[in-house]
């Protein structure tokens, strides 16, 4: 739940979603749900040579289970808040 809450705070920001099949897609985070399914808008593929056909799809739905990493905008990371939230999550778990 921690990351669900956290990603929701990043809606509207530019993120890069790296999939388990090595495809990395950059776009504006449109929404995220509790399964960490991710919707991006105005997407583009980071490695366009490898995936030319994925050039600029307008909107894109990515299944949460195929996401390996999400790269965040540096100023979207509130380290203190995350620090506290993770500590709470660990204590509560």
């Amino acid at each position: 739940m921690l990351f669900f809450s956290y990603f929701k705070d990043l809606v509207g920001r530019e993120v890069t979603v790296e999939l388990k099949n090595d495809l990395a897609i950059r776009g504006t985070l449109h929404s995220v749900d509790q399964y960490l399914n991710i919707k991006l808008e105005n997407t583009r593929v980071v490695d366009q040579d490898k995936y030319p056909h994925m050039l600029s799809v307008r909107n894109c739905f990515i299944r949460g289970s195929v996401v390996r990493y999400v790269q965040l905008p540096p100023d979207g990371v509130d380290i203190d808040l995350l620090h506290d939230a993770t500590r709470r999550e660990a204590r509560g778990g």
Partner: peptide, 8 residues
């Protein structure tokens, strides 16, 4: 895994 609208 993924679905998208492709208009390009």
């Amino acid at each position: 895994s993924l679905h998208a609208v492709s208009r390009d």
